[in-house]
Design a protein around this nucleic acid. Structure first.
Lengths: 388, 388
DNA sequence: TTGATTATTCAAGTCAATTGAATTAAACTC
DNA sequence: GAGTTTAATTCAATTGACTTGAATAATCAA
């Protein structure tokens, strides 16, 4: 993930790109907004905003949304995102399947694929992707596809995946960015699934108004995505957020967070109680029926997550911690409400406009949609090259 | 700490400011470097770099450092930072004293003050500062002072300090930035002591080549500074890095990190052994004499810190974790070497160019010098306005 | 109806980047 | 050691994008 950035300098062209993002970002978060207001909020002149909006409109990214009368003076022409003006492709690579989704500029899912993989080796995956692309190009206008985001389970080495813990063999020492961008013929961004999922909530979900938050992702294990000022914190090597091994204290016993709060931990727990939950729907049913075995799991998980949340709040001071991932939403909601919060924390702000722990709303395909959201976030959030 | 940024847009002027920082940053980290090389490293043209360097040189921030023959072609004129071209003021407010330091552009300490405070109320502090400023202006040319950094123990509320844990009463609900910038008549930056200390290592210490790292700070308690891509991670309300309450597991007993690894924990531990260590020098002597009581503390502290390091590495994936603060350096070195590292971590990189845990080198006044380093870091690291 | 207010556009001006050709000084080649 | 190659730097012209200030348009208030 680490690379030498040789483009830290600014020039007119890069200023324009930056300002286009600023404008798109304001429109995205305000939903409908006029030029003058964007100018005030961004520090640009109305003239500049006008020019940029004209450009964005002819390119199809924006559309007029009537005038709004708001007191005296000429009513401002409102602009909003033209959802069909661009599309982002999201790819999630899992050990047994490849998920894909297309989101439009507004963040709405317009297509979803699930392609089985036997081993998820690079060859098989890339080959499957080439077939997928044919389909993708039939679904939306190819020239309207802005880019692709790829979500894979980490951890990442300097290139490719590394370490002994990940479940995708054969990807070590590969230049992932090169591999995918060549196969897809699109600019790509690669993140682990938790990070991608975190972005989904920012672009379309409950984190839309937030710029600094943490996201706990229930995948096979448990992942953490950290977003600071609208950008993912990747860490030096792209592996920030490995929270699974966090030690938690359950009634005097130390356990790893992931072994108590994850999908695989439910399966283990329920199997011990003689119940098979290999199907996700079973879980949903059990939850609706208030299964005692499931609620004893929930209790443990919530307790463990409470400790994780306390640590996250202390170390990162986020606006909120969001919970999401591939779990029945009723169950997730239940967990969310049961997480104990430390009243002595700096995050305890009685006047806060929202809860400290929030339920994510992006559903089971969060990571796939999140992969696409990585692309959308780049449209809406200005970035500048990092320090050397 | 949170505020509405109305200047996220880019223009020619802000581009220039950005590029000046890029150029200063390259020169700072390379020590001596020619224009063409800066151009290559930054993506700017040599012409632009030439213009900026000419500007910076006439302003006194740079100076020529001879030509370097490096093979064929015209030998490049080398430039380096002109240390006396600018000064940064650092202020550290503690409950019983105000520390101040001036660093030159090269990061060298040119003056230090220690002014006793009886209660460190805003009134007393600001009054003391006004007297200090008279002295400061006699020490260096007033117009060469770039700005001031302020280090205070957190946590911060939306304005001022808040919470029950901090030791500076009377600062609640104050607009710190306004208060200090008006008293000093300088642009100011305010951070907690751990964050300031973290910056000291980046500007002058062992973190000079690092852009993403964590810093564990021994103050009265224990603080954490997180630096990502050359910038401090502040969190949503400026309180990121509150690591003191982290639970650690010592032989089955759960303790708070701060109660085992901090200056006050040493005092408690040694008092229990019947030894008084209210003077820091005593500690140094005891360490040199290999006091058994002290080494039993060190062992516990290192064990606890090992757990904290593991969590930091997993959550943040830094290039390194640096240890520093107001402790005898021999003792710190000892702790550093004794911290157990998890071999299974993603941070275990046998080919890394440096250790995973590094001893800081900025000495006892790290936080004060660090406050000044906040200012210097802004000179050397380009920033752009954060997302809305 | 008139004046105040706010949004927007028009036209000119400015800033700071880029581009391409020219100059300088060293190293390599024969 | 004369000529060629290479690299850094400067000179002069150009361009892109933002700003400025004046003009115009549409609404509210009196």
């Amino acid at each position: 993930m680490k690379q030498t950035h040789t483009t830290s300098g600014a020039n007119a062209e890069r200023s324009r790109a930056h300002n286009r993002r600023v404008v798109m970002g304001k429109i995205h978060s305000a939903h409908e907004i006029g030029r003058a207001e964007i100018a005030r909020a961004s520090g640009l002149t109305t003239q500049t905003v006008s020019n940029i909006i004209a450009e964005l409109e002819t390119e199809g990214y924006l559309r007029e949304a009537g005038r709004r009368v708001q007191g005296r003076g000429l009513p401002a022409v409102q602009y909003s995102i033209n959802a069909s003006g661009g599309y982002a492709l999201g790819i999630e690579v899992r050990p047994t399947a490849l998920f894909a989704a297309i989101l439009d500029l507004g963040g709405t899912n317009v297509a979803t694929w699930r392609l089985p993989l036997s081993k998820a080796t690079p060859d098989e995956t890339l080959c499957t992707l080439e077939h997928l692309m044919l389909d993708v190009k039939r679904t939306v206008q190819p020239e309207r596809i802005i880019g692709a985001g790829i979500a894979m389970p980490g951890p990442f080495g300097r290139t490719g995946l590394s370490g002994s813990a990940h479940d995708l063999p054969g990807w070590e020492d590969k230049d992932l960015t090169k591999l995918f961008s060549e196969a897809l013929e699109l600019p790509v961004q690669i993140e682990n699934d938790a990070n991608a999922a975190a972005m989904a909530e920012r672009v379309t979900g409950v984190a839309k108004g937030l710029s600094t938050y943490a996201y706990l992702y229930f995948g096979t294990g448990l992942g953490l995505g950290l977003v600071s000022q609208g950008q993912l914190i990747a860490g030096a090597f792209g592996n920030a957020g490995e929270i699974g091994q966090l030690p938690v204290n359950l009634d005097g016993t130390i356990a790893q967070l992931e072994s108590v709060a994850s999908r695989s931990s439910i399966q283990r727990h329920m199997n011990n109680a003689g119940i098979d939950v290999s199907e996700m729907d079973t879980l949903d049913t059990l939850h609706a029926a208030q299964s005692p075995a499931l609620s004893s799991w929930t209790e443990q998980a919530a307790k463990a997550l409470g400790q994780a949340v306390a640590i996250i709040e202390n170390l990162f001071d986020p606006q909120a911690v969001i919970l999401g991932g591939a779990m029945p939403s009723g169950l997730l909601k239940d967990i969310t409400s049961k997480i104990p919060l430390n009243v002595a924390s700096v995050s305890h702000r009685p006047d806060a406009p929202h809860d400290r722990v929030i339920l994510g709303q992006c559903g089971r395909l969060t990571a796939t949609n999140g992969a696409a959201s990585l692309v959308l976030n780049r449209v809406y959030t200005p970035v500048f090259g990092p320090a050397a």
